[in-house]
Amino acid sequence: MARRAALYAAALVAYAFLYVPLVIVVLFSFSASHLGTRWAGFTLHWYRVLLHDAAMLHAAWNSVIIALAASLAATVFGTLAALATRKYRLRFLPVLVLAPLSTPDILQGVSLLVFFVLLNVTLGLKSVMLAHISFCIAYVAIVVSSRLAGMDPSLVEAARDLGASPWKGFWLITLPLLAPGIMAGGLLAFTMSIDDFVITFFTAGAGTTTLPLRIYTMIKVAVTPEVNAVSTLLMASTLVLVLSISKLAPQALKGMG
């Protein structure tokens, strides 16, 4: 019994360490105080301020556009990458596809910046999208691969055997069976893109800003409750996405570890 109690206590401390900071942010986003770190009664004031903050809304809009474009493109390329690594069974291929997962963001950010400058790509929305596509592909590929690994290879052979061309076999069997994995991979890519800071920071150039960049600029001045409000919204949307992923492809999140 004592061991069990100790286990629960340890778990409680661990989860508190992870979630208490987030809870504080959510709490203070409803605080009437002008300081981001003091409680002075409940209000929705900061959410109203947020709705009228044109710069913040513009940054959020940019983030959503970038995340949509990046996750859509990465979903296509990542799925193709997963199919290719399965089909050709080359040892270096999965390594090349998944390497961005373990490369430090700062390194990716700097190298992409140098790359864009060398190619004379104007920094802005498009360069950020390209950068996000490049690191999102790996996330989609790993989720789709885990789904693919659980698929009986004789299913596609059976389709061919029963009269389906290679294309029909893909369209009628492979794709529908991979669909939950592809969706989950796309959502994961979306969440990775929408809250990315480091890579975006290096590839956005001077004029372009996204939600995480905007929040960072704001707290350099002071932690206002508006930052808490926007963080709460960001957190809520991320949570919804992660829950959807775990629902669509429960094994995908396990494979991430």
């Binding site: 004789s154 059976a158 389709a159 061919r160 055997d161 029963l162 389906a164 529908p176 069976l177």
Partner: peptide
Amino acid sequence: PPERRPVHTIFQSYALFPHMTVADNVAFP
């Protein structure tokens, strides 16, 4: 190619398409 041979296979795992009903599986060919 297999789709143009009048030859069909029963697989050890049966390879029934899990996202299709029994009727859709049988109707596939």
